[in-house]
Computed example of a mutant assay.
Amino acid sequence: MPATHSLEPGIRIGLAELIDMRHRVREIQLFARPGQRGPLVGLHHSKLRGRGVDFDQVRVYQAGDDVRNIDWRVTARTQEPHTKLFHEERERPIFILIEQSQRLFFGSGLMFKSVLAAQAAALFGWAALEHNDRIGGLVFGASEPHEIKPRRSKQSLLQLLNRLARINQALHSDSASGTDSLGLALRRAREVLRPGSLAIIICDERALSAQAEQHLSMLSRHCDLLLLPVADPLDHALPAAGLLRFAQGDEQLELDTLDLGLRQAYHQQAEARIERWEVLAQKLRVVLMPLNTQRELIEQLREHLSEQRPGIVR
């Protein structure tokens, strides 16, 4: 892990701030409480909060038991048929995929996109833990993805947040971004997530590749999805500020932002990205909550939950 930098508000975020996000959970109800209809109740398919089953016990086989559940090891040992019993799990696995890459290490609003993404991950993590769901996740983008398996444990969430804070603090303008890191992270999620899980994907708005779309489509067949693409106002529109020079490593780019055609083409590309996310959310019938660095996180989430928007499941 590269050396971390000193914390600068809005530019980098520390573990203490991610832990403090637990106090903000009471400001917004993200998940339904037992017996209630909540904003994201559509993401929970039963009162038991899950669709999977967990092993319970083994007992002597009885007429009517499913022969597919016979425990052949116990049957062979006891010389009497035994069957496995299962019960529906009462907490749902929630898996948060958070991008922390060089393309997120930028912001012209209240904070960098990487900080906003980290705040959102922490808020949903604490809300899930309060809802008695199992929480885990994966931080991707700037280094090898680090995975925390879903558990109903504060320690599990703290491990995820600690990893998130360390990667966030190590970001800088020359950080390397992995090739289609979102696609690789989603492929890993498909390998580890059980049916009935909820996958929360927090990534740069520009991360949606053809491969990522394919993985999201396949993941949505047995898991619920919550998509939170993160953007900055400068991702959508260039100011008419004259000649601007951009540098990354040894590469340099010079743009004349007084060129109206250039600004219009730039804006059209941004509109196409936004539309691509909306079309995908509608196609997969999943929840879409775009975030931007211009406004405070809770304010944006409240607006998404109170207004009907394309792709949002009510």
Results as ranks from 00 to 15, higher is better:
Pro195Thr: 13
Asn162Gln: 13
Ala128Cys: 12
Val115Ile: 11
Gly125Phe: 09
Gln169Lys: 02
Pro195Glu: 06
Lys149Val: 08
Leu160Asn: 01
Ile148Thr: 11
Leu171Glu: 03
Asp204Met: 06
Ala189Asp: 02
Trp126Phe: 07
Phe140Ile: 10
Gln155Ala: 09
Ile98Ser: 15
Ala121His: 04
Leu123Glu: 01
Leu97Val: 03
Ala199Val: 11
Ala176Lys: 12
Leu171Tyr: 01
Arg206Ser: 06
Glu130His: 11
Leu208Phe: 05
Gln119Ala: 09
Arg206Ala: 07
Ser173Ile: 09
Gln169Ser: 09
Ser114Lys: 02
Ala212Leu: 06
Glu99Asp: 15
Ser143Asn: 12
Asp180Glu: 01
Leu184Cys: 09
Asp204Phe: 05
Ile167Ser: 04
Leu123Ser: 05
Glu147Leu: 12
Ala122Tyr: 01
Glu191Ile: 08
Ala128His: 13
Ala117Arg: 02
Met111Pro: 08
Arg152Ala: 07
Gln155Arg: 12
Ser108Trp: 09
His146Lys: 13
Glu147Lys: 00
Ile98Ala: 15
Ala185Pro: 11
Gln102Phe: 04
Ser177Leu: 15
Ala121Pro: 00
Arg152Ser: 05
Ser156Ile: 07
Leu97Glu: 03
Ala210Cys: 14
Ser101Glu: 01
Phe140Asp: 04
Ala176Cys: 13
Leu110Asn: 00
Gly109Tyr: 10
Ala118Leu: 08
Leu171Phe: 04
Lys113Pro: 10
Leu116Glu: 05
Leu160Val: 03
Gly136Asp: 00
Ile167Glu: 08
Asp174Val: 14
Phe140Ala: 09
Asn132Thr: 10
Gly125Gln: 03
Phe95Cys: 00
Ile98His: 08
Gly125Glu: 02
Gly137Cys: 13
Leu123His: 02
Lys154Val: 13
Leu186Met: 00
Ala128Ile: 03
Arg194Met: 13
Ile135His: 06
Arg206Asn: 03
Leu157Tyr: 02
Ile201His: 06
Glu147Cys: 08
Ala185Cys: 13
Ser153Pro: 08
Gly136Pro: 04
Leu182Gly: 07
Leu182Val: 11
Pro195Phe: 06
Leu164Gln: 01
Gly178Gln: 15
Leu182Arg: 04
Trp126Ser: 07
Gln211Asn: 13
Gly107Arg: 01
Asp180Ile: 04
Ala199Glu: 04
Ile201Leu: 14
Pro145Arg: 05
Phe105Met: 07
Ser101Lys: 09
Ser181Gln: 10
Gln155Asp: 14
Glu213Arg: 07
Ser175Asn: 14
Ala189His: 01
Leu157Met: 06
Leu161Glu: 00
Ala199His: 03
Glu147Ser: 10
Ala170Asp: 13
His131Lys: 08
Leu157Val: 07
Phe112Asn: 04
Asp180Thr: 01
Lys149Trp: 10
Gln211Val: 12
Ala185His: 12
Ala128Asp: 06
Ser175Asp: 15
Phe112Glu: 02
Ser143Lys: 13
Ser209Ile: 07
Leu186Val: 03
Trp126Lys: 01
Asn168Trp: 09
